[in-house]
Nucleic acid binder design. Structure first.
Lengths: 348, 348
DNA sequence: TTGAAAGCGATACCAG
DNA sequence: CTGGTATCGCTTTCAA
């Protein structure tokens, strides 16, 4: 059956950019006429070994010609470790405060020669998340919020993570914890309103689900602040929409409140506008306090009283990570890092 | 020499959490009393092979006892490919528009069984970035802005990336491009002001460096819009600070302008406030137009006219990526995806 | 049904 | 100064 011998070309459409195999260090070695070991020495500038200048040039030329790029997975497999710091990618729009903090952290870590990777963890939950992260064998994990429990921390450490840092409301067993206690935000806001003589205080609770991690602790702090006083708290559920704010404003007078802590500056702006449109005067008829100290609070009229939140310096956190990586023996430390300050302006 | 047989314990300080070696599938196999192959079959539910129920249980039990987590790098090295989609981590605070888009994209990609990783690329520039990304051997790369040039795209493709998608002002050779042409934003804003009878128009240029990628194209669009009209454009550099806005407002009357396109809603708010504090009336003395259609624009008084920007659906982009991955032969396509619309409110 | 062994890509030791 | 080679952890034929 001689006709069967006619070879069918592998690529029937050779005009397409043929799916060429990715060049490896072996290819570079072959082209340069040296061994793979030599290629490795040259490309990594290994100081323990001296390679002749002509050879170096041939290797570099070959690498460039092939467009060789080393394979990170292979390298870290061989090395037995990586310098990857893993953080979960944010799932809710972050305010400038947070994004500034993370940029600084990222920058500082890369100065220390770490590679920062944000890992999207949509759909996973609980300890599955920790397992998914552990598969990447990061040298360190920085996890804001309540992503990680003690179990997750243990999984990560068993998988070689030398530092696990959480930024959360309370200490997590086995991990370094920077305590970001948002209760203090509510507490400060309410305390301020009390000194202004307010007693019947509303607390805005955003209906956006991703925000409950912040809104609940803030509310808890509010309750703590009214303990042992004659003031009363009223929860005010509010979606971040004009209509919702208008509806709340419409029934405002029946609520009989003389102040409101609006969760943050953005909700404060939303609510203030609706209240003003209803003819309510701020601060005569009621006081309004926001939080986060965003620029927009200064641009409102009246200017918005707010709780300024100072996050720790990204550089400090980066150094904590680095220290923990280099001395894995140290006891995980826990410390509060939210420094809060009421900025009194005109709305209260 | 019998005494030599006395073993020195590996961990001399057993109180510290001993730096135990990370368990591998070989350890699981040993503990379960089976071969590594069997472990792999069981843990991956390989359907081609039938493993007896008792064996499966023993393997699972051993894995759980050791806290075994597979090593992603080893796996993808062996497999020869990964399902990692790489995106650069944002370096500037992103507005809710963008962050919503990326969340949707991330979610859609993970539904398609891709792993989304955001890679921080601080300090690197140009083709070094592409090389750093290529080391991770992603199956696809999605890069907003002008991160990637044709050279970078080529590097990534040679390293096995089967899809490279850029979101940028103009097509990039070799990559799928979703054209996000911000010139249209400026053009729409100015066109609107012209129909309102304005002729001497200021254009705010943010001084924050990360924003020039947007502000320059927007300005270019402004120029295009005044082509062939009797209108004139004045660039107004402005930092995002109250003092800068106040200074600009103080010399406003000498500028002799009857309208301003304020780059976006946030700068518009900043500037409007300063101008109002100077006693200027909006829109009687001048018109103001923002962009991005943020919530705050609706809350200002007068309500802010703005250019609404509609990004493509994250799901569509995810499908584009998936198609490109599965059929790497297809010609990279280029299409505009920014749909713009002037929302006329009270400030113009 | 299970096990032995090859091999993915890069590196580092040890000979030559 | 350069080259063979074992090795990292895992998957997947091929044999038993």
């Amino acid at each position: 059956m001689p006709f069967v011998m006619v070879q069918i070309p592998k690529q029937s459409a050779p005009s397409l950019p043929a799916q060429r195999p990715v060049p490896t260090s072996a290819d570079v070695a072959r082209l340069a006429g040296v061994s793979r070991a030599t290629v490795s020495y040259v490309l990594n500038n290994t100081s323990a070994v001296r390679i002749s200048e002509p050879t170096r040039r041939r290797v570099h030329a070959a690498a460039k010609e092939l467009g060789y790029v080393p394979h990170a997975a292979a390298r870290s497999l061989r090395a037995g470790h990586s310098r990857m710091v893993l953080m979960p990618a944010p799932t809710v729009p972050v305010n400038p405060l947070y994004s500034g903090f993370f940029n600084e952290l990222q920058w500082a870590l890369s100065r220390l020669d770490y590679t920062v990777v944000q890992y999207g963890s949509v759909g996973l939950s609980g300890d599955d998340i920790a397992r998914a992260w552990a598969e990447l064998r990061p040298v360190a994990v920085v996890a804001p919020g309540a992503w990680l429990g003690p179990e997750g921390v243990a999984v990560l450490k068993r998988s070689g993570a030398r530092a696990v840092v959480t930024l959360s409301p309370e200490a997590v067993e086995g991990a370094h914890t920077l305590i970001l206690d948002h209760r203090g935000v509510g507490e400060n806001a309410i305390a301020h309103l009390l000194t202004r003589g307010r007693r019947r205080i509303g607390v805005v609770m955003p209906q956006e689900s991703g925000l409950s991690a912040f809104s609940k602790p803030r509310l808890e702090g509010c309750h703590r602040a009214v303990q042992g006083t004659d003031a009363s708290l009223t929860e005010l559920p509010l979606a971040y929409e004009e209509e919702a704010a208008a509806a709340l404003a419409a029934r405002w007078r029946s609520l009989d409140l003389d102040a409101v802590f609006a969760y943050n500056d953005e909700y404060a702006m939303l609510l203030m506008r609706a209240l003003q449109d209803e003819g309510l005067r701020i601060p005569e008829d009621l006081s309004v306090v926001g939080a986060d100290d965003l620029m927009l609070g200064r641009l409102l009229r009246p200017r918005l009283t707010t709780v300024h939140i100072q996050l720790p310096a990204g550089r400090d956190l980066a150094e904590l990570v680095d220290r923990a990586v280099r001395e894995p023996g140290v006891i995980p430390e826990t410390r509060g890092v939210l420094s809060l300050r009421v900025v009194h302006r005109e709305s209260s």
